[in-house]
Simulated scan of single mutants.
Amino acid sequence: MPLATTLTPRNATLLATVAPRGGLLQALVCIVLGSLLLTASAKVQVPFWPVPMTMQTLAVMVIGMAYGSRLAGGTVLFYLGQGVAGLPVFAGPAPGYTYIMGPTAGYLVGFAVAAVLIGWLAERGWDRSPVKALTAMAFGHAVVLALGVAWLSVLFGAEKAYAVGLAPFWAATLLKTLLGAAVMQAAWRVVRRRSAAS
C-alpha cells in the first residue's frame, strides 16, 4: 500500500511528499537506510559513564519527522532488533541483549516511543512550521530523557540518575533540538522550491 494513501497533501510527511507512490520496497529501503543512520549516529559520541553522549536522538527525531509514525517506529525497532541479534549497531561495546538491558535501556526504548510521537505530529503538519517542528523535537527529546532517567533511577537511584543521565546532556539536547528542526525546515524549503519550479 502506498505510504501516502492515508495522508492528504496538506499533512503528508516529507517522505510521502517526495515519493507519494512508495510501496513495500521503498519502505524496506527506508528502514534499512534509517537503521544505518542510527548506527552511524551511535558511533559519533562523547564518552560519558554510564550513558555515552551520541548523535542518535537527532537521528531519531529527523527519521520520525521525515518518515511518519509507522515507518519511523518500524525503523527504530529494526535497529534495536539488529542490536539484540548481536550486530555492532549500539554505541557501546557490549553485545546484544547485555547492552540493551544495561544503563542505556530506557533511552533505547525512548527512541522508539519518540520516533512514533514525532512521526504522528509530522503527519499532522508539525514538521512544516518552524515553531511546531521545534516543539515536536523538544517533546521527542523529553520522552527519550524521561524514559532514560527513569531506568537509570531503577539501577542507581534518582539522584545519581539525574547527575549522570540528565544533567550532562542539557546543552547537547538543546543543540540537537535546534539542529533537527532546522534540518527539517531546510528539507521542506528544497521540496517547495522544486515543486514550484516543476
Rank of each mutant, 00 (worst) to 15 (best):
W170Y: 10
A138F: 13
V46M: 14
A16Q: 10
A138G: 12
T6F: 15
V46E: 09
A91H: 02
Q26R: 10
F139E: 03
G148T: 07
A182T: 04
V131M: 03
P93D: 12
G140D: 05
M101N: 15
V116T: 08
C30D: 02
P20H: 01
R189Q: 14
Y107Q: 10
A196P: 04
A59N: 13
W49K: 10
G110D: 04
Y162M: 10
P88T: 12
V89S: 09
A150S: 15
I31Y: 11
T17L: 00
G140L: 01
T173G: 13
R70P: 01
V29Q: 08
V149L: 06
L174H: 05
Y79S: 09
A138Q: 06
I118M: 13
A181N: 10
L145N: 06
W170T: 02
W188S: 06
A181R: 02
P20L: 01
G81Q: 14
R21W: 04
A72C: 02
L24I: 14
G102K: 05
L174D: 05
Q45Y: 03
L152N: 02
L147R: 03
A66M: 01
A12Q: 07
V131F: 10
L28H: 01
A138C: 12
S195P: 04
I63K: 02
Y79K: 08
L24D: 14
A172R: 04
R189D: 14
I31Q: 06
L15D: 04
M61N: 05
P47C: 08
V60R: 03
Q45G: 14
L77Q: 07
V143I: 12
S129Q: 05
F156K: 15
R10H: 13
A196C: 05
R10Y: 08
L71S: 04
A138K: 09
P9M: 09
L33Q: 01
H141I: 07
K132E: 07
E159R: 09
L36C: 12
G81C: 11
A85P: 02
G125L: 09
A163Y: 13
L24Y: 10
V44Q: 06
G119S: 14
S69E: 08
V190I: 15
R194N: 15
A85V: 01
I31A: 09
A171Q: 10
L174K: 07
S41R: 07
G92S: 15
G96H: 03
V131I: 03
M65D: 10
W151Y: 09
W188H: 15
G83E: 07
A112C: 15
R128P: 14
G83H: 14
M55D: 12
L175D: 15
S195Y: 00
C30E: 03
L36M: 08
Q45R: 10
A72D: 04
G23P: 02
V89D: 06
L179W: 00
V44C: 11
L77V: 11
L33H: 05
T39F: 12
A114S: 15
L155Y: 08
L134S: 07
E123Y: 05
A12R: 01
T8A: 12
L80Q: 11
M61K: 07
V183S: 06
L166V: 06
G148C: 03
L80N: 11
I63Q: 06
V116M: 10
T5I: 10
V116I: 13
L36P: 05
V18H: 00
S41F: 05
A182V: 00
